[in-house]
Structures are given as C-alpha cells and as structure tokens.
C-alpha cells in the first residue's frame, strides 16, 4: 500500500466502521432507555425549579427535589457555589446532568466494545479486512461524537421547550456550558479509547475507564468542596500530580477562565483539545505497537 493512500483508506475505513457502529447502536434498546433517563432528569430539574419560584424569588425549600439538591450542594460546596450554579436558572445543571449521563454511557459502551474486539479481532476478520486498529479507534470515536452531537441538539431542543413553557431564561452560560461539555465528551471518549488500548479484557478496560473517571471527578469535587485539614492536603497533593491528565480539570479551568473574562472560552478549551489529541495519539501508538496481532 502506498504511504499517501493509507490515511485516505484509514479515514474511509473509520467512516464505514462509525456508520456500522451507529447503526448497531440505533437498533439496540440501550440508547433509547438512556435518552429517556437523561430527559427525565432534565425535566425533573427544570419543572421542580419552576415550582420552587415564589413571588420573592427562588426558594429551594418549596420542593422536595430542590431541598435535597440544595442540601447536597451547599453542604459539599457551599452557598456561593449554589448561587452561581442557579444564577441564570436551572438549565446549566439540567444540561450538565443529562448530557453527562449520555456522554458517559456512549463512552463506556465504546470502551467495552473495543476491548472485546481487541481480544477477539472480530471486526477486521468478519467485516472489514483492510481496516486496522487505528481505524477501529477512529470509528468508535466518530460514533461517540455523532451520538454526543445528536444528544446535545436533542437536549437543547427539549430544554428550549421547557424554557418557553415556564418562561425560564436560556442564558449565555448554558451556551458556553454546552460547547465546553461537547469538547469534554470528546476528551472523555478519547480517554476511553486509550483505556481500551491499554487493557486486555473488556472488564478491565471498563474498570480502568470508570476508575479513572471517578478519580478525576472526585479530585474536581474536592477542589470545590469545603474540605479542611488532612483531606485538603491529600486532595491537593493528588491533584497536583494527576490533574494534568484529567479532562475534567482542563474543562473546569476553561469554564472558570471564560466566566471571569480572563480568556475566551475557545482559547481556554485549547488545552482540553490538546489533551484529547494526546490520548488519541497514545491510543494509536499502542495499537500500532501491538501490530496485526489481536487487532
């Protein structure tokens, strides 16, 4: 095969694999159940917010859900964090929760599937002889991103309907949160692909991916939580060592920079894009070093 033709062939193979994976996802029941759950979460957060409004303003004590949300957030992160989160309304939280749910579902599906295929070498043998491991990675990434984009559009449309119904504002924070979360989903998917390339079994790949994601989430939460003493020292030490590899850290940094007006969101998100590229490069190198073996 000529060197110049390889990227084109690889791109074509990745596209075909992505289409095939998308088709398989769409004919399975999982995506519909996940979409239902995400919409239900968004609906509950928005509708209950509307019910929590009294003549004098937002009062979380009026509904059970928001009483719980208030207690959880304020006890963990403080009143300032809560006020900032709901400054524009409920949409930033509703979108983050529901989109996060779907993005993690898509990424974990890809991780498990890729690791399984890596073990058995099913895809190339059965369907696409010319495809290599990198094409499979790119195909899975393409599938995740297509699904994430569709989910983002679906969620924004749904939130738009709720916004019109309750006269709630969809402000600039939601727009920047949507853009930043999409890029975060890209980074998380890339991290998942790296996990799938590292592990030899589907279960270990899923465990590695989930463990890393949880660790990064806990480190981010610890950054905002009012922990003191030893817990803060430990969290700071761990963060100092691991945060550079965490997509959540770079995402949070970009969002905070944009909120403070220090940097435009598109510039702040560049390190996150660079991290995603590093994950993909590492996954590609691992795949190539594995040779034609199980791939």
């Amino acid at each position: 095969m000529k060197a110049a033709a390889r990227p084109r062939r690889r791109a074509h193979a990745a596209l075909v694999i992505a289409q095939r994976l998308l088709f398989e996802t769409m004919i399975g029941p999982g995506i519909y159940v996940a979409a239902c759950c995400a919409l239900l979460a968004a609906h509950a957060l928005v509708t209950e917010f509307a019910l929590s409004i009294e003549p004098g303003g937002f009062n979380p004590e009026r509904t059970a859900l928001y009483r719980l949300v208030y207690e959880l957030i304020v006890s963990a992160f403080g009143q300032t964090f809560f006020d900032g989160l709901f400054a524009e309304g409920p949409f930033v939280l509703a979108y983050t929760v529901s989109f996060g749910l779907l993005a993690v579902y898509f990424a974990s599906g890809s991780v498990t599937r890729l690791a399984m295929e890596r073990r058995v070498g099913a895809m190339e043998l059965v369907c696409y002889g010319p495809a290599d491991g990198t094409s499979c990675l790119l195909g899975a990434l393409g599938r995740d991103m297509a699904l994430s984009l569709c989910s983002a559009l679906l969620l924004l449309a749904f939130l738009g309907v709720l916004s019109l119904r309750h006269n709630l504002a969809m402000g600039p924070h939601l727009a920047s949160a949507a853009a930043a979360l999409f890029l975060l989903a890209f980074a998380v998917s890339s991290m998942g692909l790296l996990c799938a390339s590292l592990a030899t079994r589907a279960a270990s790949a899923a465990a590695l991916f989930t463990g890393l994601l949880l660790l990064f989430a806990v480190l981010l939460a610890a950054r905002y939580a009012g922990v003191t003493g030893y817990a803060r020292t430990l969290a700071s030490a761990l963060s100092g060592a691991l945060q550079w590899f965490s997509p959540l850290f770079w995402w949070d940094l970009a969002v905070r920079m944009a909120e403070r007006g220090a940097l435009p969101a598109c510039v702040g998100l560049l390190p996150l894009a660079a991290l995603s590229a590093s994950y993909l490069t590492a996954a590609h190198l691992l795949t190539r070093s594995a040779g034609s073996g199980p791939w």
Partner: peptide, 24 residues
C-alpha cells in the same frame, strides 16, 4: 426579571420524555 409560568399540569411535558421510549 422573569415571571415564571407554572401550568396547571406541570408534568404534561413528561410526554416528550417518553418519545425516545416509543421510538425504541
């Protein structure tokens, strides 16, 4: 300042949530 509207049946929009379910 937004005056929030709460419909008599605030959960009517739950039907929209079920669309993916029926699609599935």
């Amino acid at each position: 300042i937004r005056v929030v509207k709460v419909a008599k049946r605030p959960y009517a929009t739950l039907l929209l949530v079920l669309i993916p379910f029926f699609m599935g």
